[in-house]
Write a protein that binds this DNA or RNA. Structure first.
Lengths: 225, 225
DNA sequence: TCTAATAATGACCAATCGGTCATTTTTCGG
DNA sequence: CCGAAAAATGACCGATTGGTCATTATTAGA
């Protein structure tokens, strides 16, 4: 009862516990990237994590709890990346286009994480999910500011989320990142045009987003070097 | 060796075999609509189908083969519905919009089948999949005929498939079919505008598709009865 | 160094898994 | 009515499953 009611300082014990927990999360992420939750056994997880079976239940009540934590972790990382990219961006159109690019880039660079996330979130792609709250806010603001035209919120949300989702899935398959950057740019263009931007405007915004986020994406019209 | 090399005519034996096979497919479909393949045991399937375990392996090599057949069955049904709705339709824009509506209606009316299909196809949503060959053809023709403008085939395909996919997923959650029809109409509008149709044109085509396919979808502007 | 608390361990369990196969039931040709 | 072929059956098998728990190893504090 010395140091208040805080039995744990930041000692080695904490670090040890944190290490095995991290190993379990990492192993789960790796395995969930390949198989469904039911297709991975606890034995598989602890074997990959190089941890005793009992330790698993010392950290998580069951497999699903681990899966939820894995998904939450990756989701938070993706949200942070989008937030960072859009920190100083006001234009809702550019924000949406950049979000698309960030998701695509994230999928290309961290395929394992994204694979796990998509598998664990499969079917849970409701527009009202907290995961999509950022896009929802951008869309609402864009509608309010007349940046987007003739867009109802439910339909607009579905369009954006559906596009982002399939783009991420596609990014997991692509080989050359160049093609990916072009794809994200073209897809962003179609998306923004769908949301009501004029074609010229959509081209400019989508191109700018791709240039900013995906290094290898050039502008739509080639220029002499 | 009597009746040529055809040991089976169309007798009761055939029908008996067909019935247990159908029972297995139906049970698999029902269960795969709720859980992943690895989350359903063969015992579950044969119990639901009211069939002995041995009979299962009399028809399918393993669980995955059953899953493939279930997916193929539902996929074929969906394709047939789209094909029928678009039989006499030439305009690629209208064909795309109607396909969207048909998929949404199918999901609303046969949620179990669509749930199973989406779960079994999760991750296999490549644009080059045979499932999407119809949409691909429509898109290609629309581009060639300048019905769509500034659309690259890869990006256009992703936009359409992603939209259809998330619309189906949404249809599985919706309660009132009226809202669904409106959603399909609005989403079709955004999709067509993204593909390059003028806003007025997109409104007209999406509205027409919704009116044709989804009975409860009125035109965008209410009219006096 | 000693002790209490905490975390890691892996042997162990009953239940369930995918898959097999000898047997019984049904159907068909004659 | 009689075999023979085809199909359905369910008891059975070894492997694997999710989950437990008494034991051991590590750490923190005195």
């Amino acid at each position: 009862m010395r140091a208040a009611a805080r039995p744990l300082e930041n000692g080695k014990e904490d670090r040890r516990r944190a290490r095995t927990r991290a190993a379990l999360l990492q192993a789960g992420r790796t395995l969930f990237a390949e198989c469904a939750v039911d297709g991975v056994s606890v034995d598989d997880i602890v074997l990959r994590a190089d941890v005793a079976k009992g330790s698993f239940y010392n950290h998580f009540a069951d497999k699903d709890e681990l899966a939820r934590h894995v998904a939450a972790e990756v989701r938070a990382e993706a949200e942070a990346l989008v937030g960072a990219a859009n920190r100083a961006v006001a234009d809702p159109a550019l924000r949406v286009a950049q979000a698309l690019c960030v998701f695509v880039q994230f999928a290309a660079e961290r395929p394992e994480k994204v694979r796990a996330l998509m598998r664990l979130h499969s079917g849970a792609t409701l527009p009202e999910a907290p995961f999509n709250s950022g896009v929802r806010a951008d869309l609402q603001r864009g509608i309010a500011e007349r940046r987007f035209s003739d867009v109802t919120l439910p339909a607009g949300l579905l369009l954006v989320i559906g596009t982002v989702q399939i783009a991420m899935g596609r990014a997991l398959e692509a080989e050359r990142p160049v093609a990916l950057a072009e794809l994200a740019r073209d897809l962003g263009f179609l998306l923004l045009r769908g949301l009501g931007l004029a074609a010229k405007d959509a081209v400019a915004v989508a191109g700018r987003a791709a240039e900013r986020i995906l290094p290898s994406a050039g502008p739509r019209t080639r220029r002499r070097p």
